[in-house]
Structures are given as structure tokens and as C-alpha cells.
Design a protein around this nucleic acid. Sequence first.
DNA 1: CCCTTCGGAGAACGATCGTTCTCCCTCGCT
DNA 2: AGCGAGGGAGAACGATCGTTCTCCGAAGGG
Lengths: 189, 189
Amino acid sequence: MTSTDTGALSDSSRILAAAQRLFNESGVQAVGMDAIRAAAGVPLKRLYRAFPAKDALVQAVLEERDREFGETLSAYVDTHGDTPRGRILAVFDYLDEWFGQADFRGCVFINTAGELGAVSPAVTDIARTHKQALRDYLAELVADAGLPEDRADQLALLANGAMATAGIMGTRDPARQAREMARVLLAAR
Amino acid sequence: MTSTDTGALSDSSRILAAAQRLFNESGVQAVGMDAIRAAAGVPLKRLYRAFPAKDALVQAVLEERDREFGETLSAYVDTHGDTPRGRILAVFDYLDEWFGQADFRGCVFINTAGELGAVSPAVTDIARTHKQALRDYLAELVADAGLPEDRADQLALLANGAMATAGIMGTRDPARQAREMARVLLAAR
DNA sequence: CCCTTCGGAGAACGATCGTTCTCCCTCGCT
DNA sequence: AGCGAGGGAGAACGATCGTTCTCCGAAGGG
């Protein structure tokens, strides 16, 4: 066995990074395998050795984005939230920073489920699992703050609403609005 | 002049209805012009006489859906809302009924903007205009209820969050959750 | 120095799809 | 009856794209 393993891993990372960027920029269907090959700087043969088909690559990109989102969000919350309630509100500060990035084009799960969900159950499953994971994370924060359990669904709905609205309207305002709404809802009774 | 005009109008309606159904079922890119022709029961020649290209048909479908949504929603609100605040909450009852329909597949504007927005500014514009119109309608209801203006954005965010979440998760619960959140937010201070 | 093996570059293939074109039938007029 | 126009059905065309194949050059072992 030569350096095949590390080589393949490095290929995977570069391909995933390139595909994620291109899918985010232009949507899945508008990006061809050849564009991904060019952006990743690998020959087509290695691309297909790493991912046997475009479907598999799409799913891998979504799964990686799910991991990355979860890690980045919880790291942000750990850094910026000092009280249990502050940790919940920090989620919306995180959204605010995200929406402000120049390459923000909406939530890739909302976008991709809208684009491919009707035709690819696998994509829908991944999007559903991702949104469920976000809800479960919020449920942890809610429990830590000693708040009633149903606030988790409420916060998830606010987050998704902010992502959908910001993605379409092209503004970061929805993050701040959702934060304010969360503040009011957490204070309520 | 023969019956060309009414004929063309009738073609348009049938094509728009068929395309709207198919786009909703499978997404825009997964539906070919030939499938639309078959579903509408018109020859390809008349399809292209009514809409010179697929792009134009997509935009027409979205614009018709925008009109239809606005009319249906405001009719529902007029019918089901007795007080100014009740009219606001009726918006979420409307969403609840909509999400419960067997063919509900999410908001076509959220889905289509996610699918084509990156590549078609026209689609993004229509989706933005539609979401702005929803916000403006909510602003009317908010003003009629004597509530502060910023509640319009809040309600729009709740509605979009419910649509996005329900579309992905495949459940109607988000409508009821959004309704409850709206109730609390309208009661707040 | 030859032979084999591997991988890279990109041509080729097959399918799909938006759009146009061809062919033929029908209908109305003279 | 003969003829021209219009329209219907679907074949054809051109482009795109996912996937596979071919060809060639480089590297390494005998």
C-alpha cells in the first residue's frame, strides 16, 4: 500500500470544498462535474474514484456542511454566550454574522431540498436530519436555561424563517428580528 | 379575427395550471416542456405560441401563483377573522390548512429561488416581490390592529419559517407553532 | 535498455431537453 | 372538385452533462 489513502483523503477534501463553494454559488444542477474537477484541481478519474457519482458527491457535501455548521455554531455559542439565555440569543448573533458574509446565498439545506427534494429522497432525508439536529441542539440550550421544551421548536422556526427570508431578500435584518423575537418569547410567562 | 384570442387565453390557463402542478410536484428543472405539453393537452406549437420559452413560462407560473396566493389568503382572512387581531392569526390558520393538503411541497417561491435564484435573477426578483407583498399585506393587518409597525416583519418571518420548516419536515405543525408565537408577540407590551 | 503499470488529459458516448422543423391532414373558400 | 392556409403530431437538431474510454507519457523494476 502506497500513499493511496492519504492521497484519496486529500482529494476528497479538496473536492468537497470546491463542490460546496460551487453548489453554494450556483446551485447543484447548474454546476457540472467538469467545473468541480477544474475547481478542485484533480483529474476526472480521481474525482470519480473519490465519489462514484454526482449524487454521492452532493450527499457528501451536504453531510459535511451539516457537521461544519453544527461545530461552528456550537463553538460560537460557547464563545459568545455567558448565561444560559445568552447562549440561546447567541445563536441568532451567529446567524447575523453568517448572513453578513459576502457569499451568503441562503441555507444550503433549504435551497437544495427545494431544488432536488422532489426528485431525490436522499437529499430530503439529509435536510430533514440537519433541521432536526438544529432543533435538538436548541432543545439542549432550552433545557439548560430551564425553559419549557416547546421553546425549541419555536426557536428552530425562528432560525429557519430568518434563513429563508435572508436568503431570498438578500439582507441580514432577519437575524436581528429573529433575535428580538426570541428574546420576547423567552421572557414570556 | 377569429376565436384566436379566447383560444390563446384558454391555452395559457391550461398550460399555467399544468405547469404549476408539475413544477410543484417535481421542481422546475425536473419537468420538461414535453411533460407540460402532455399535461396541458396542447400541441408543442401552441405551448410555444403562448410562452416563447421555458423561462417565460416559469416566470408566468410564479406570477400567477403570487396573485392566487394573495387572493386566496386575503379571502380566507376576510372570512375567518372577526377581530383585527383575529385576522392576523387567521393568516396562520390559512397556513395550517395549506400545509395539510396532500400535495403541499413547500412554498414554491422559497423552493424555486433556492433552485434557480443563483442562476436566474428574474426568478429571485419575483420571489422577493412576492415575499415583500406578503410583508406588506401583514403590515396592513398590523396597522388595522393598531400594533407597532415592526410586527409586520416579525409576522412575515414567522410565516416564512413555518413554510420552510413544513416544506422540509413534511408536517403541518409549524403553522400552529407560528400561530402561537404570533399570539404571544402580538400580546407583548 | 526494455517492458509493464499507473495516472493524467481530454475525447467520446449516451441520454436528456429546449427549441425548431417537416410532413400531412383537415377545413373553408371558390 | 381543386386549392391554399393553418394546425397537429412528433421527428429532428443542437447543446449540455454525467459517465466512461482511449491514448500517451512517466516512473520503476528486471
